[in-house]
Structures are given as structure tokens and as C-alpha cells.
């Protein structure tokens, strides 16, 4: 059971990293990080971006559930 959950954590983590990297890059890096003025985002989010958001949220949910699951198993001594 623990092994299964661990594999689940591995898979969802890798998927999560890939999905986040797929998102369009926003913000101007460090220059805007600390008091660098504001820039408006003129480009609205497209349908593809919206679907990507939904998928990412789904993967995040799976990720959190499997992490908490492993934590519980360890605590219960399983």
C-alpha cells in the first residue's frame, strides 16, 4: 500500500512539474520582483490555458491526497 502511494506521489509530482512548465510565462522575472513597477497583462487567457488550469488543479488535488495518505500510513505504522 505504501509503495503504491509512493509511486502515485512520484507520478503526480512529475506531472505537476511538467504542467506548471507548460503554462505561459508571466511576469518579467526579477526586475518586477521587488518594486519594479507594474505591467498590465493585456493577453487574456485562452481556452487552452483554461483547460490547462483545470488539469493542473486536478493533478494538485491528487498530489495532496497521496502525500497526506502516505503521511497517515506512516503515522499509523502501516
Amino acid at each position: 500500500m505504501t509503495l503504491l502511494l509512493q509511486i502515485m506521489v512520484l507520478l503526480t509530482s512529475i506531472l505537476l512539474v511538467l504542467l506548471v512548465l507548460l503554462h505561459r510565462a508571466k511576469g518579467g522575472g526579477l526586475s518586477s520582483l521587488f518594486g519594479g513597477g507594474m505591467q498590465s497583462n493585456l493577453a487574456g487567457s485562452s481556452v487552452a490555458e483554461k483547460n490547462l488550469d483545470r488539469m493542473t488543479l486536478f493533478v494538485i488535488a491528487l498530489w495532496v491526497i497521496s502525500i497526506i495518505g502516505t503521511g497517515l500510513l506512516i503515522k499509523l505504522g502501516g
Binding site: T12, S13, I14, V17, V20, W63
Partner: peptide, 15 residues
């Protein structure tokens, strides 16, 4: 598993 989870956490935070 721990390393990959932390990496995913950093990516999540970036998002």
C-alpha cells in the same frame, strides 16, 4: 520520493 515531492512543491509555488 521526497526530492521529487519538494521539487513539485517549488514548481507549485512558482505557479
Amino acid at each position: 520520493v521526497i526530492v521529487v515531492t519538494m521539487t513539485a512543491g517549488a514548481a507549485l509555488l512558482m505557479w
